[in-house]
Simulated assay, not measured.
Amino acid sequence: MRSIVGKWQLFVDWGNSGNPITASELTFKSDGTWSYQFGGGTWVQAGSIVTFDFTNASGLMYSGTINSISMGGGMGYTGQSGNNSFYCTPSGTKHISIEKSKAEKDDRAIG
């Protein structure tokens, strides 16, 4: 099982619109803290379950699972309902947009 320690690129989809946006790079440290350009917080990993909070956004929690290539799950403010999701990939992973992926699939189907 992969450890969360290291640098990850965060993508968020507030409202689960189907159009996640590129957010910040997160750095998870072995001491149970993490940081990004606007602050940070604390994190815990139990098996494949990961949870982290924000010291500069009271009540904001992210919780999900980690596998060998990514982590992802849901996020929101405690005490509020919501339909939000996130995913992270190791920093440096190449990405293409959903639209570009669909267009490439459509191009391969022509013929």
Results as ranks from 00 to 15, higher is better:
Gly41Ala: 08
Phe38Cys: 03
Gln37Val: 14
Gly15Thr: 09
Val12Phe: 03
Gly72Ala: 07
Tyr62Pro: 00
His95Ala: 06
Cys88Tyr: 00
Thr89Trp: 03
Ala109Met: 09
Trp14Ser: 09
Ser17Gly: 14
Thr78Asn: 10
Ser85Val: 01
Gly59Asn: 10
Phe38Ala: 14
Ser35Asp: 14
Ile21His: 07
Asp106Ala: 12
Lys94Pro: 07
Gly73Ala: 11
Gly18Val: 12
Ile98His: 06
Asp13Ser: 13
Thr27Ile: 11
Tyr87Ser: 08
Gly15Pro: 05
Ser68Leu: 10
Ser81Leu: 13
Thr93Pro: 01
Trp14Thr: 09
Tyr62Phe: 15
Phe86Met: 05
Asp107Gly: 10
Asn83Cys: 03
Leu60Asp: 01
Leu60Ser: 02
Thr51Leu: 05
Leu10Ile: 06
Ala57Gly: 02
Phe52Ile: 01
Gln80Phe: 15
Phe11Asp: 02
Asp31Val: 11
Gly79Glu: 10
Phe38Asn: 14
Glu99Ala: 15
Val5Leu: 09
Met61Ser: 03
Arg2Phe: 06
Gln9Arg: 12
Thr93Lys: 05
Gln37Gly: 12
Lys100Glu: 15
Gly111Val: 08
Phe11Met: 08
Tyr62Ala: 07
Ser81Glu: 13
Val5Lys: 04
Ser3Asp: 15
Gln80Met: 14
Met1Lys: 10
Gly6Ile: 04
Ile96Gly: 05
Gly6Leu: 05
Lys94Val: 11
Phe28Tyr: 03
Gly76Pro: 02
Gln9Phe: 03
Ala109Cys: 04
Phe28Thr: 00
Asn84Met: 06
Lys105Leu: 13
Ile66Asp: 00
Tyr62Leu: 15
Thr65Arg: 14
Gly72Ser: 07
Ser24His: 08
Lys94Thr: 12
Thr55Ala: 10
Gly47Leu: 07
Gly59Leu: 09
Thr33Val: 07
Ile4Asn: 01
Thr22His: 08
Glu99Thr: 10
Ala23Ser: 15
Pro90Arg: 11
Ile4Thr: 13
Arg2Trp: 04
Arg2Asn: 13
Gly32Tyr: 03
Gly64Trp: 05
Lys105Thr: 13
Gln37Met: 13
Ala109Lys: 13
Gly73Ser: 11
Trp43Pro: 00
Gly92Ser: 11
Lys94Glu: 10
Lys94His: 05
Met61Cys: 04
Ile96Ala: 06
Asn19Leu: 09
Lys102Asp: 06
Asn56Gln: 14
Met61Pro: 00
Ser97Trp: 02
Gly73Glu: 05
Phe86Asp: 01
Gly18Pro: 04
Asn16Cys: 15
Asn19Glu: 14
Thr89Asn: 05
Gly59Asp: 09
Ser85Asp: 01
Trp34Arg: 00
Met1Pro: 08
Ser30Val: 03
Leu10Gly: 01
Gln9Glu: 13
Gly40Lys: 00
